[in-house]
Design a binder for these strands. Structure first.
Lengths: 391, 391
DNA sequence: AATTAGCACTCTAGGCCAAAGAGTGCTAAT
DNA sequence: ATTAGCACTCTTTGGCCTAGAGTGCTAATT
């Protein structure tokens, strides 16, 4: 009871050892096992005392009285925040990822798809990616092309060479020249505009000067508008669901089945990933403010974190209480940014997984730049700094 | 031993009853249970005798000496070929399917995607679709459009309004007008040609008369060629994997896991589906020939089967020995045709499943026609004739 | 005051056994 | 040809027991 609530150095060492062992073995960790596997210079009895204190503080739990300990959500959180060391990724993994991603892809979407697959291969967990947030990018070109009477295709070129297209219906009586006239007018009206800023009203102004009946032009404009708004829709890529079954936490079919049901709600998962990002950015801004208060020198020692972690109960999606999320933000040249992440059981090797996801992110970004013909990025932008142990 | 090898009417009735019961319960069927659930006017002892004969003939098997019987692959085959009755689909299902498919889709691919989802919802099994075989359709239009220096988009319009596009790289020094010249030449050269007939040599002839250096034009032509060949690649859509876990045969995680591994080899699954189709068509041709020999009148009483079934060991994909395939061919206006199908455990309600898949097929075709603005198809093309019982 | 040895206590996992029950196969009777 | 009856087989379930892994506590040690 006495000093039970202080987290000293020894407790940290032991907590870390327990998490590491538990992650490796999937079995509750016993005091003796700790003595054997880590040279802690302590007897199992002492360890037991420490473990009891850690349990009281909420970092550990026991499945039943006479079993070893396993980390609680709080335990994992402490581990990730303070005890974790992110190892360098192995040469082989580095090569595997680079090779996997450097097949020639046709468009941005293909690269994302491939990245998701890569990430789940590397981690053996479910991997998710969100298509970039395009609202901030601007239209470089917008073309409307006749396919046959009544149908046309809208091709949208965004900054960084991202291309989207969509079939639309147009009034059947429009001929190719008339459509081209409208198309030119639309392009004149929208080129350079940010996607997010484009409104139906704005696009309607393109109707002027085409010399065609308003009703007809407006139908085309409306369809074009839909096509534009469509590209803003965030798409969710997901892969590696089958890998979950390899892990002992999904030995129970019921459980796996329920988890898959949750994963099918891709929009919800996507929404949650974006929430995480928002939260994390808010936290970051707060940290900067505090820093400025503390030291007036204004040196930015508060780094934007390279990755985000959510553990168990922290995830407020029903049915994900036993999972963990690791996500990170990727960039594809300039401001265009989306997210990739993995979802697995709480018991995962956070250090390795963070290393993997970080490197995949880096490799993907490099690949995207290569694909656009841009020069490789300067180093360090994606370097992962390992956290120092602190209390 | 005596008359053990003749399949009489009574044996058929009992075999059918056993399959029906086993499909419903997933438990080996006992003689007493048969007496209770079907009024066969026979005692359980007699049934036991018949069951023993059916087992000897290979239609049934027992998990162990003192257990009820379950159908063997051969038993299922006999059931599907001779004993099956395909029930009409329920009003609710009909409405559910129609509603699910009649959301407005943008392009052919979207409809296929939606169909796969629909089919797996309806059946609770894995559902697969192959994109149509386009080799036989011809190019109505081919456009090449500049996106930015060095990049362009190829838009291919096939018969029945199917549109495909693909980004390509072009020599950076080509300006828009030059590209347009090449594009027009390509269109002139390829319009109306069947996809399958188009060769690299043929497309090369489009280089003449553009007045541009051969090396440059050829690069564009080659990319266009790739774009064309790309559309011929059969794409595989798959959905409902998570549904498998609901079925008792996948209670064992190991087994489910292995099955998922097989399903990931989509190209193999697709290849197999096409093989089935080939086989079935060959069989059909043979049947017609035989018919012509028999009756010189030439009435075509040999119907092209509306669906194809492969059971257990019949499937020669490693790891699919315990599954069954039901597939069928869909048409999207004219010759364009692909396949949809379901994959589930051998123990499935073949009658219902065939009814579902047939109706989904019909609804999808109707939707495709509606989408293209074509009139609804005449009835009966997709009507499913139930097989008569025969030996 | 912190650590540790020692021991009693708890809980699980696995093995074993017995009993119940579900089914069949066979024989003899109808 | 059918069926009643019965012996026999095999699985399933529950109970019981033991071995073993682990803890928590107390008393001894440093």
């Amino acid at each position: 009871m006495k000093g039970a609530s202080v987290m000293d150095e020894r407790k940290k060492t032991i907590l870390k050892a327990i998490v590491d062992d538990y992650v490796a073995s999937a079995e509750p960790v016993a005091s003796k096992a700790l003595v054997k596997n880590h040279n802690l210079q302590l007897s199992s009895a002492t360890i037991r005392n420490v473990m009891a204190e850690l349990e009281e503080m909420g970092y550990l739990e026991k499945p039943h009285t006479s079993a070893g300990r396993m980390p609680s959500d709080k335990g994992y959180r402490a581990y990730v925040d303070n005890l974790l060391s992110v190892p360098p990724i192995s040469q082989e993994d580095e090569k595997a990822i680079r090779d996997f991603l450097s097949v020639n892809v046709n468009k941005a979407q293909d690269l994302i798809e491939r990245t998701v697959e890569c990430l789940s291969n590397q981690t053996n967990f479910v991997s998710v990616a969100l298509s970039p947030e395009y609202s901030d990018s601007s239209i470089e070109q917008i073309k409307i092309m006749m396919i046959e009477p009544g149908r046309a295709i809208v091709v949208l070129v965004l900054s960084a060479g991202v291309v989207h297209d969509r079939l639309i219906r147009i009034p059947a009586m429009l001929d190719e020249q008339q459509l081209n006239a409208i198309a030119r007018s639309v392009e004149r009206c929208l080129a350079g505009k940010k996607l997010d800023d484009i409104t139906l009203v704005m696009i309607s102004s393109a109707a002027e000067g085409t010399g065609l009946p308003d009703a007809i032009v407006n139908q085309v404009l409306y369809e074009a508008y839909i096509a534009i708004k469509q590209t803003e829709k965030i798409e969710v890529y997901i892969d590696g669901r089958h890998k979950l079954l390899q892990h002992p936490e999904f030995r129970d079919v019921e459980r796996a089945s329920r988890f898959y049901s949750v994963l099918r709600q891709t929009q919800m998962v996507a929404g949650y990933m974006r929430d995480i990002q928002q939260e994390e950015e808010a936290k970051h801004r707060a940290a900067i403010l505090e820093q400025q208060d503390d030291t007036a020198e204004g040196e930015l020692s508060v780094r934007k974190p390279a990755y985000m972690v959510r553990i168990g109960q922290e995830i407020d999606i029903d049915g994900m209480e036993n999972a963990s999320f690791i996500t990170t933000t990727y960039r594809m040249g300039g401001q265009i940014a989306g997210q990739i992440g993995i979802i697995g059981p709480k018991r995962m090797n956070y250090g390795d997984m963070i290393a993997q996801i970080s490197f995949v992110n880096k490799a993907m970004s490099a690949e995207a730049r290569r694909h656009c013909g841009l020069p490789p990025e300067e180093e360090d932008d994606f370097a992962v700094t390992s956290f120092k142990v602190q209390d």
